[in-house]
Structures are given as structure tokens and as C-alpha cells.
Amino acid sequence: MKGFIAYLWMEIRRTVRNGRYLTFTIGFPVGFYLLFSALYGREPAGGLSFTTLYMVSMCAYGAMGAALTSNGARLAAERGGGWTRQLRVTPLTPAAYVLARMTMAVCVALPAVLLVALAGVLVHHVHLGAAAWLGLLAGIWLGSVPFAALGVFMGYALDSESAYGGVMIVYFGLSILGGLWFPYAIMPHGMQLAARILPAYHYASLGWNAVAGHAPGWRNLGILAAYTAVFAAAAAWRYRRDEAREYA
């Protein structure tokens, strides 16, 4: 447990110092939010303003990026460079290491959520009740768990050469097909179908429901839980395969 906390703390510190993390998980979501809300902000979108709904989308986009990219390519590079091998000759157990990495990914998703929300409040005067804020922030923050598992899976499944590109394709693909960049309502039918199958739409729906004053949808939660189980199992499978190949 002491090792888990020490590793988690070190990983959080090195992640938030990383330029790529700052760009992808803070710079882009806040930047996109300000840009698109300036372009489309006056158009009403159902009962809620575009600036509110798009704030939720960009909270989800940033948190998902943090959860995916904080492991992904970095984990693949550390594996290739022998750092995980060095860790194996310390008392830190492999399970504590993997859990610390996943927990780190969820932790560093929080600043992304908070900063986009702050931009919404300060720039567009988004006004929500306490329950809506709590539902939005907690839902988008903790809903990033399946993407943290996916990031660990990709870190073990890809080598250091292909991991960066692979993670970016998955990240942008899931964001677009999840209705985070362009609203679900304006998507063609085929994309809407993909959105309902893939996790990102259900993830952002936790936030969209919260700001609309609805309770979280059981269907969204169930699908995210199922994806968490699938990605965690896939990560465990690749992890064991990696161990077996490296240390037979």
C-alpha cells in the first residue's frame, strides 16, 4: 500500500509536468470550448444553451484524453526502455504498479474537467444548481475509469513505436463518434449508431443529463461498467502476455 501511494504520487507529479499532458488535456479542451462557443454560442440547442452543453462535451473530451494519454504511449515506452523491469526487482508488486497507473490516469483527468468548467463559468457565465454541478463533475471525472483501463491496455498491447499514433487515433475516433466534437443530434444515422455502441457518448451523457437536471441514466452507467470490465480484462490479458514473454 505504501508503495502504491508512493508510486501514484510520483506518477501524478511527472504527468502534470509533461508538456503533452498540458497540451492535450488542458490546452485543447479549453481552447476548443472557447473557439466553438464563440462561433456557435448564440444558437439555442434544445432547452439548454450551446455554451453549457459544449462545456460538458469538452470536460469529457479533456478528461478522456488525460485518462488515455497519461498511460498509453508513455507506458509502452517505459516497458520498452526497461523501467518496468527495474521496478520488478523492487518490493513494489506488479499489481500495485498497474493499479497505481490506472489510479493516476483517473486523478489527472480531474484538472481537465475543472478547468473547462471554470472557463464555462468565467467566460460564458454558465449557471447551474449545486446538484447539476455535482452530477456533472463527479460523472465526468469518475466516468473516465474505462478510458484509464483502455490506456493501460494500449500501453501493454502496442510497442513504443506505434503506441503514440494508436492512442491518438483511438482518442480522436472515440471523441468524434461519441458526439464530443459535433453534437450527436446533427450526426448522420450511421454515426449515431456507432455513438450508441461506443463508450464516449454514454460517458458524456452522464454530464449532459446532469446539466439538464436528470438523474444519471442506468443504461449509460451499465454500458460504461461493461466497457470498464472489458478494457480491464484486456489490459490484464496483455499484461500477463507481456510478463510471460519477458520473464519466461
Binding site: N18, R85, V89
Partner: peptide
């Protein structure tokens, strides 16, 4: 404890 031959250090710290 051990000092291994090919083990990169963790960048960023």
C-alpha cells in the same frame, strides 16, 4: 536490490 544492465530511468522526475 539490483542494478540492471538495461533499465532506463523514469523521465520527468
Amino acid at each position: 536490490a539490483a542494478m540492471l544492465q538495461t533499465a532506463n530511468l523514469l523521465p520527468g522526475v
